[in-house]
Computed example of a mutant assay.
Amino acid sequence: MITPPPPEWAPHDAVWIGFPSHPELWGGDCGPAQAEVAGFVRAVHARGRGERVLLVAANEEVGAAARALVGDFAEVVVERFGDVWLRDTGPILGGDGTAHRFDFNGWGRKYEYPGDEDVGDRLARRRGLAPVTHDWVLEGGAIDFDGTGLAVTTEQCLLNPNRNPELTRADIERRLRDQLGLTRILWLRDGLLNDHTDGHVDNLARFVAPGRLALPEPDGEDDPNWVVYQDAAKRARAFGVELVRIPSPGRVLDESGAIVPASYMNFYIGNAAVVIPLYGRPNDDAAVEAIQEIFPRHTAVGIRADHILTGGGSFHCISQQIPAR
């Protein structure tokens, strides 16, 4: 019988964190994004309870810059990659230590960069793990686990024809059961507006305990994801999970005036800290307080992540935990 992946709040040996390495992908935001990542690294390390931070840079030159920023807070690992989102390109580590590797197609053929297709294999082998490969597309940010065999995902992503057009919902559920030991799947409909990933669930809904799901509370009807949050809550209640609500940052715009997929849900749960992305919004403090209540044994740390968001994600998207054996 396949052991399901452990939940993120289970103990970690270490965590891989991607370091922005290609300025051409970031416009003028690469340096500021690197500084925000360094703040994330320090927060995890300072309260790590033995959780090692492995900061992954794409080449030796960027690796030297990373070492200068983080000092002794992390071990810098140089492995070639294209984009920084290791949640999606890294391996999913199962409860038995198996490094599961799925096909990766650049988020539906939209962002294909050399190195992303096999960086997960190389990181796994560095840990002495032989990757187990699966011949269909699944990104780590597209699914979240509670450790009991229950997972949550979105139809927008996993049923998207740009991922696995030949697979039905039943096919995907069967593969999740047979390959990852997941026996129950909560299907939400859509992810956040303008999410480059086609609705990754880690920007929308996160398990925070067995059978307990955190979801944003809309910041009024002006919230661009008001309908998304309400539909997700309705489906979750019908499925039978317990809901806990976290404030939404509401309407967040970039310099051009476009709505961006800002979310407090893209937090990372470490051994001792929960690190939450902030955006200079009125609900920032309330979100940190709400997440602190959910995780009383952790320290909730809010860190600005505006520049990381210009690349399309935040702290959860750039990290992938390595569960303790």
Rank of each mutant, 00 (worst) to 15 (best):
25 L>H: 15
183 T>K: 05
113 Y>D: 07
205 A>E: 13
302 G>V: 13
293 E>F: 08
105 N>W: 14
273 A>F: 11
102 F>C: 07
78 V>W: 08
180 L>I: 03
182 L>H: 06
125 R>S: 03
270 G>A: 11
58 A>S: 15
12 H>V: 11
104 F>K: 12
279 Y>S: 10
6 P>G: 07
297 R>Y: 02
132 V>E: 01
101 R>T: 11
74 A>F: 06
36 E>R: 07
73 F>L: 12
197 T>Y: 10
86 L>D: 01
88 D>C: 09
240 G>T: 14
122 R>H: 04
144 D>V: 01
222 D>E: 08
190 D>V: 04
114 P>S: 07
151 A>I: 08
119 V>T: 10
74 A>P: 05
90 G>F: 12
35 A>H: 08
254 D>N: 15
72 D>L: 15
91 P>R: 09
290 A>M: 05
231 D>F: 04
244 V>G: 09
8 E>L: 06
184 R>W: 01
140 G>I: 10
198 D>A: 10
125 R>Y: 05
240 G>D: 14
239 F>T: 12
220 G>L: 02
258 A>W: 09
48 G>N: 13
215 L>E: 01
148 T>V: 09
315 F>C: 01
203 N>Y: 03
199 G>L: 12
56 V>K: 09
254 D>C: 10
19 F>H: 14
10 A>Y: 13
294 I>P: 06
86 L>F: 04
288 V>K: 10
252 V>M: 08
133 T>V: 07
95 G>I: 08
67 R>N: 02
12 H>F: 06
239 F>W: 14
160 N>Q: 08
102 F>Q: 11
45 H>I: 02
45 H>E: 11
8 E>W: 00
250 G>C: 13
28 G>V: 12
222 D>H: 02
27 G>V: 10
97 G>D: 09
147 G>W: 00
107 W>L: 10
210 P>I: 11
16 W>Q: 12
227 V>A: 03
122 R>I: 11
292 Q>K: 07
26 W>P: 11
1 M>K: 02
9 W>E: 10
228 V>L: 02
177 R>F: 03
291 I>Q: 14
192 L>A: 05
221 E>W: 00
62 V>A: 04
55 L>M: 09
170 A>S: 06
10 A>V: 13
131 P>T: 03
299 T>H: 13
